[in-house]
């Protein structure tokens, strides 16, 4: 085992070198920028060192809190809808009494929106949801479901819901597949024993399926949180790229992008990156703790 360790260095060298240069160094560089008023133009040499004043601004920045809340709201709504559909489908398809057919076809069809470029989806819904001339309103009007067009992308509630639901539409297939795989992995014996004990469907769901599924649910939760906190493409391209209507689609990463690359506040953009990082760490820590507690039991 301990042999050949010089080769080991050689084998991990590409990883370590690239990791240091393209991962670690940019992170430190970003941290350094967060202590300056660098505009991103004319080289860092022209920037002033401003100490922690960017961080002072961060903790008092209402737009940052707003962006945080927007992100959480959109993610939360998206996650609930996505999981309800995915879990419902997974339960249906794994039910031993129903024995539904066509699993692989449905899995494929439901998964399909996942592989499509989010930027394309955002652009598509940007024109589908247009107030006066969007296909959705046109269709609802001609079906008589509404009397007047709804200005979807002008109302913060509708716009946030739209992002959440588009996200749910894109990603429920992925969760469904993962949950279905998880449920299929639960031993049949449990259910048969429960059946003999006369347990009803709900009892076996709460007493067997859910506890057995917990690790998978947590996995889905963690990946969803980390992805959700980085929400960017969809809110950016769905409206005016600045988070309209009324800043309701201004997510944390979109705010970071606009500060750094639209308004040329590299220094503050870098600070926002660290704000995002801290929030991600807090959320991940909470989830990891929950996971750890489960293992102790």
């Amino acid at each position: 085992m301990a042999k050949n360790n010089r080769r080991a260095y050689l084998f991990i060298a590409p990883f370590v070198i690239v990791f240091l240069i393209f991962n670690i160094y940019p992170i430190f560089l970003t941290f350094y920028y967060s202590l300056t008023n660098y505009s991103g133009m004319g080289g860092i040499a022209n920037a002033e060192f401003v100490g922690i004043s960017n961080y002072v601004r961060l903790v008092t920045d209402t737009y940052f809190y707003e962006a945080f809340l927007n992100t959480i709201q959109i993610w939360g709504f998206n996650f609930v809808v996505q999981m309800l559909i995915a879990l419902g489908l997974a339960l249906l398809f794994s039910d031993i009494r129903l024995k539904l057919r066509g699993v692989s076809i449905f899995r494929a069809l439901f998964y399909l929106p996942n592989i499509i470029t989010i930027a394309s989806v955002a652009l598509l819904f940007n024109i589908l949801l247009d107030w006066n001339h969007g296909a959705l309103n046109q269709m609802l009007l001609s079906l008589g479901l509404i009397d007047s067009p709804i200005n979807w992308l002008n109302s913060p509630a509708y716009a946030q819901s739209a992002v959440a639901l588009i996200g749910a539409w894109m990603w429920f297939g992925n969760s469904f597949i993962i949950l279905l795989a998880g449920i299929s992995g639960i031993s049949r014996d449990y259910y048969e024993a429960a059946l003999i004990d006369g347990a009803n469907w709900w009892k076996s769901f709460t007493n067997i399926t859910l506890p057995q599924l917990k690790p998978i649910l947590l996995y889905v939760l963690i990946t969803s949180i980390i992805g959700g906190l980085q929400l960017f493409d969809l809110p950016m391209l769905l409206t005016d790229t600045r988070g309209a209507p009324q800043g309701s689609l201004n997510t944390m990463v979109l705010y970071l992008y606009n500060q750094a690359f639209r308004y040329n506040n590299f220094g503050y953009g870098a600070t926002l990156a660290y704000g995002l990082f801290i929030i991600t760490v807090i959320f991940s820590a909470i989830t990891f703790r929950t996971m750890y507690r489960r293992e102790v039991r």
Binding site: F22, Y33, I226, L276
Partner: peptide
Amino acid sequence: VMMMVPGQLGLIGLYDL
């Protein structure tokens, strides 16, 4: 540790690099 780091953390640094 790095698995928890959001990709955007180094974005500005990566740009400058």
